[in-house]
C-alpha cells in the first residue's frame, strides 16, 4: 500500500517536472525584447560583436522548430533549434552558460544555493519557532491583553514592508553589525572558525528581518489553529483528567494544532532555494533571490532556467515531504 502510494506520488512528481522543464524554456522567451540588445546595451559593443554573441549563444537558431528546413523535409535540420539544444544539454546534466558572466549555470547555482539556504532556512526557522510559540500562547490566553498584544504586533509586522524593516535594522545596528554581504573580504580563510563567526555576524540582521516579517504569518495561523483545537472535546477530557495547563497545551493541543502548520512549513522550506529577494537586496546577500532578480532584468535565460528548475525540483520534493510527514503525524491519514 505504502509503496503504491509512494510510486504514484513519484510518478506525478516526474510528470510535473517534465511540464516544468518545457514550460521553463518558453516562459522566458515570451518576455518582450531581445536579450542580446538588452544585455549588451553598451556603447562599446558594435553590431558585429552583438551578432557574434548571438551566434555564440545559439540565439540565431529558431526557438522551437526550424520551419524552413522542416518543409524541405530535412528532419535533423528542422530540429536544430534552441529548444532541442536546451533539452540535449539538460539530459547531459548541463544547465548552460550564463549570458552575462559566462559562468557555468550549474556552478553559479551551486555556489549560491547554500548561501540562500543558510539565510532563508535560519530566518524561517526562527520565524517558525517564534510564530508557533507566540501563536500558542496567544491562543491559550485568548481575549487577554497578551493575546491582543500578540495580534497587534503580528498584524503590524505582517503589514511592515520588508525593505523598510531591513533598512531600519540596518541603521540601528550600524557600526555593531555588518551592513551587507556574507563575509568580510580577506578577513579569514574559508572554513575556519573565524570565517564562520564572520558569516554568523553577517547573518544576524538579514535572518532577523526575514524572521520578523514571516513570523506573524505563522503566528496567526498557529493561533487560529490552536483556538480551534482548544474548543475540541478532547481538550475538555484532558482538563477533566486533572492535567495542568502546560501538559494540556503541549501533549494534547500542540500536535493537533501543528497539523495544518506542517504543510505550510514544508512548502515554505520548499521555496527556501528561491531566496528572499527583498532581504537579499537590502543586505546585499549573494543568494539565489538576487540572482533571479538580476537575471530577469538582463534576460539571462540560462541562469533563469537553471534557477527555476532548481526551485521547481525543491518545491516538488517539499510537496512529497509534506505528504509523507502528514501521514506520519496524523494517524488518521491513511497512506493509500
Amino acid at each position: 500500500m505504502q509503496f503504491d502510494y509512494l510510486l504514484r506520488k513519484v510518478f506525478f512528481a516526474v510528470i510535473t517536472l517534465i511540464v516544468v522543464i518545457v514550460f521553463n524554456f518558453f516562459l522566458f522567451r515570451i518576455l518582450p525584447g531581445d536579450p542580446v540588445k538588452l544585455l549588451f546595451r553598451n556603447p562599446r559593443l558594435t553590431r558585429e560583436a552583438q551578432e557574434l554573441i548571438r551566434v555564440q549563444f545559439g540565439l540565431d537558431k529558431p526557438v522551437w522548430l526550424n520551419i524552413e528546413r522542416l518543409s524541405a523535409g530535412d528532419i535533423p535540420g528542422a530540429l536544430d533549434s534552441q529548444f532541442t539544444a536546451y533539452i540535449h544539454n539538460l539530459l547531459q546534466g548541463k544547465l548552460g552558460i550564463s549570458f552575462t558572466n559566462r559562468q557555468d549555470v550549474g556552478e553559479v547555482l551551486s555556489e549560491r544555493v547554500w548561501r540562500t539556504v543558510l539565510l532563508v532556512f535560519s530566518g524561517e526557522l526562527l520565524a517558525i519557532v517564534m510564530g508557533v510559540v507566540v501563536g500558542l500562547v496567544a491562543a491559550w490566553k485568548r481575549g487577554t491583553a497578551i493575546d491582543s498584544a500578540a495580534l497587534f504586533i503580528g498584524l503590524l509586522t505582517w503589514a511592515l514592508p520588508t525593505f523598510f524593516l531591513g533598512i531600519i535594522l540596518l541603521i540601528l545596528a550600524r557600526g555593531i553589525l555588518p551592513t551587507g554581504g556574507m563575509v568580510t573580504p580577506g578577513l579569514a580563510e574559508e572554513g575556519t572558525l573565524e570565517y564562520w563567526i564572520d558569516v554568523g555576524r553577517h547573518l544576524i540582521l538579514p535572518s532577523l528581518t526575514l524572521a520578523v516579517v514571516s513570523a506573524s504569518g505563522y503566528m496567526l495561523i498557529m493561533r487560529s489553529s490552536v483556538v480551534e483545537v482548544l474548543s475540541e472535546a478532547y481538550i475538555l477530557t484532558a482538563k477533566a483528567k486533572g492535567l495542568s495547563n502546560a501538559r494540556i497545551l503541549f501533549s494534547h493541543a500542540l500536535k493537533n494544532a501543528m497539523l495544518p502548520m506542517i504543510t505550510i512549513i514544508a512548502l515554505t522550506l520548499g521555496y527556501v532555494v528561491g531566496g528572499a529577494i527583498q532581504v537579499e537586496t537590502v543586505f546585499s546577500w549573494p543568494g539565489i533571490g538576487r540572482l533571479i532578480y538580476d537575471s530577469v532584468a538582463k534576460q539571462d535565460y540560462p541562469v533563469l532556467q537553471g534557477a527555476f528548475l532548481l526551485l521547481a525540483v525543491s518545491v516538488i520534493l517539499a510537496n512529497l515531504t509534506a505528504d509523507i510527514l502528514y501521514s506520519v503525524f496524523d494517524p488518521r491519514v491513511k497512506v493509500t
Binding site: 478532547y234 477530557t237 497539523l259 496524523d330 494517524p331
Partner: peptide, 11 residues
C-alpha cells in the same frame, strides 16, 4: 464524555 464524538484525542 460522549466517546463516540471527539472526546478522545485523535492523534
Amino acid at each position: 464524555f460522549q466517546g463516540a464524538m471527539n472526546a478522545l484525542n485523535p492523534v
